[in-house]
Design a protein around this nucleic acid. Structure first.
Length: 337
DNA sequence: GATCCGTGGAC
DNA sequence: TGTCCAAGGAT
């Protein structure tokens, strides 16, 4: 592994003992970052000492590709409504999708519901504590399994998310961004950086993640407030620009946009929405998106305002039905009951 | 490994 | 204004 940052940390912290890549340098890195975390960590409800493993699991799923500020109110509502996995498991999956609100990627709500059912039926209602058991739950991948095992159960896990990848890339490799996809070498490096002590490793994981979220951000990083800027290979190299341009996600005119608009209509509706009402806007409204939004209340107007081709509407709905995000009921379409 | 899957805020 | 990005997972 590249232990340059550990060496640099040591060189900056105790210039009289310049042992490159030493255990001492790594220890110093741990101390600096975790001390910063103690001082700067945001107060988040899922970090409270009395937060349940279920609360932490829910937070991790909600936080997949979704900013903290948008998760907060929905997380609070969920934990109040469904304080344990069994509470959620007792509801139809559509309830999870409905109360997911506008967090995005509603299939996560479906998977979280499925996870609650699995926890209730196969784990006695208790969130499993090991990485392997967590990994069997729907919607739980390598990152989430490690995060829950670490943050809910105090285990020593190699946690690697987008924040940690970016911090490591800058600190050790000197590049602005990590590789497009997670590599085995990154996982190996992250594992080698993990403190031996379980308690400290949990702290380290949380601290590096937080550093990436609030200091070592993708755009406009605040290196002036970074506890390890003087050990950072990227800073030392003069903060070079990214070597590649991340592939942007197209949105306008995509099936994803149409799927989102359809689910928004279903979420807004108590019962089944007639297929015709959902998919066929009156001809005059189809010609004028603004008129459609005005004439139809809420999400339905927004859907018709897209003026998506009938073929695309059919395809999007078929996809939602196949994914279990919608179902046919009484001649209409509704969230899965 | 490349694609698909939502949403809204920041610049 | 359009682009980029946010504690990924499944296929």
């Amino acid at each position: 592994m590249d232990t340059g940052a550990a060496a640099r940390a040591e060189g900056a912290g105790s210039r009289t003992t310049p042992r490159a890549g030493s255990r001492h340098g790594l220890d110093l890195l741990h101390v600096r970052v975790t001390d910063w975390f103690t001082e700067a960590a945001r107060d988040l409800p899922w970090r409270e000492q009395d937060c349940s493993a279920w609360g932490i699991l829910v937070s991790e799923i909600m936080l997949q590709q979704t900013p903290v500020v948008r998760v907060l109110p929905v997380w609070r509502e969920w934990l109040e409504r469904w304080p344990t996995p069994s509470h959620l498991a007792a509801e139809p999956p559509g309830a999870a999708v409905r109360h997911w609100g506008r967090l995005g990627y509603p299939r996560r709500a479906l998977r979280l519901h499925a996870a609650a059912v699995a926890i209730t039926e196969e784990h006695g209602g208790e969130v499993p504590a090991t990485h392997d058991d967590l990994l069997t739950l729907p919607g739980v991948g390598a990152y989430t399994a490690a995060a829950v095992a670490a943050f809910a159960f105090g285990r020593r896990e190699t946690v690697v998310d987008t924040n940690i990848r970016r911090v490591h890339a800058r600190l050790f490799t000197g590049t602005a961004l990590p590789a497009p996809a997670l590599t085995a070498a990154e996982m190996k490096r992250a594992a080698s950086l993990l403190p031996d002590d379980a308690g400290l490793s949990v702290r380290w994981n949380a601290a590096v993640m937080e550093l990436g979220a609030v200091i070592c951000t993708a755009r406009n990083p605040v290196c002036g407030h970074c506890p390890v800027a003087d050990a950072c290979a990227w800073v030392e190299a003069g903060r070079p620009a990214p070597e590649y341009v991340p592939k942007g996600q197209s949105w306008a005119g995509t099936d994803r946009q149409v799927r989102g608009a359809i689910v928004a209509v279903l979420r807004e509706s108590d019962g089944a929405v007639p297929r015709v009402l959902l998919l066929e806007a009156p001809a005059d409204l189809r010609m004028d998106p603004a008129a459609a939004v005005t004439a139809r209340p809420g999400a339905l107007g927004a859907l018709h305002g897209l003026r998506a081709p009938a073929e695309q509407l059919d395809r999007a709905l078929a996809g939602l039905l196949a994914d279990g995000l919608a179902e046919e009921h009484d001649g209409g379409i509704r969230l899965p009951g």
